[in-house]
C-alpha cells in the first residue's frame, strides 16, 4: 500500500493541470490543489485504502474547482472560466509566444463548454480511461463518450473555422 505522501506527490501535477484548465488561473489552481491535499490529509488513512486514490483526488479537485468557479461567478458576475483562460498568464502558450498556433488552439479550447473541455483534458492530457474519467468527474459513461466525441468534433470545427486546418 502506497503512503499518502507518495500518492500526493505522484498526482500533484495532474491535479494542478486539471485545476488550471478548469479555473484558467494559476493562482486559483494552486489554491484548489492545496485545499484538496489538506482536506485529503485528514482522511489519508481511508484514501490510501481506496482502489484508485488518484482518481478520487482528481474528483475532489474537479469538485473544488467547480466550487471556486461558482463563488468567483457569484462574486464578480464574470463570464466564466473560458474568458479567464484567455487571460491566464501561466499557460505554456504565453511562455512560448512564437508558437502562435498553439496559443490559438488554447483559445479555441477555452471556448469549448466546460464539461467538454474537462473530459478532453482528462483524456488527451492525462491519458485517462473512460472509467477513470467517470470516477473523476461523476459523469455517466455515456456522457463522457458523448462529451469526448463532441469536444473533439467541436475543436476540429473550430480549427476549420479559424482556418488552422484545411478542409
Amino acid at each position: 500500500m502506497q503512503s499518502f505522501t507518495s500518492i500526493a506527490d505522484s498526482v500533484r501535477d495532474r491535479l494542478y493541470r486539471l485545476a488550471l484548465r478548469m479555473t484558467g488561473d494559476g493562482g486559483d489552481a494552486e489554491d484548489v490543489v492545496q485545499e484538496v491535499l489538506i482536506s485529503s490529509w485528514q482522511k489519508r488513512e481511508e484514501i490510501v485504502r481506496l482502489d484508485n486514490p488518484p482518481a478520487w483526488l482528481l474528483k475532489m479537485t474537479h469538485n473544488r474547482a467547480i466550487d471556486r468557479l461558482r463563488s468567483r461567478s457569484s462574486r464578480s458576475n464574470n463570464e466564466g472560466a473560458a474568458a479567464h483562460s484567455d487571460q491566464c498568464l501561466e499557460t505554456p502558450h504565453r511562455l512560448v509566444e512564437t508558437e502562435d498556433t498553439l496559443y490559438h488552439i488554447h483559445r479555441l479550447m477555452a471556448r469549448l463548454p466546460a464539461e467538454q473541455r474537462i473530459v478532453l483534458h482528462l483524456r488527451e492530457v492525462e491519458g485517462m480511461s473512460y472509467r477513470e474519467i467517470v470516477e473523476a468527474t461523476g459523469l455517466t459513461m455515456e456522457k463522457v463518450k458523448v462529451y469526448l466525441h463532441r469536444g473533439r468534433m467541436q475543436l476540429r470545427e473550430l480549427l476549420l473555422n479559424e482556418k488552422i486546418v484545411e478542409r
Binding site: R12, D13, L15, Y16, R17, L20, R21, G26, A29, E30, V33, T91, P92, H93, V96, E99, T101, L102, I105, H106, M109, H121, E124, V125, L155, L159, I164, V165, E166
Partner: peptide, 19 residues
C-alpha cells in the same frame, strides 16, 4: 499535417507542472 499542432498542443499541456 494540419493536425500536427493539435497533437503538439496536447504535448505542451502534458508538460505543465505545479509550481
Amino acid at each position: 499535417q494540419p493536425y500536427i499542432p493539435l497533437f503538439r498542443y496536447w504535448e505542451v499541456e502534458r508538460a505543465v507542472v505545479a509550481p
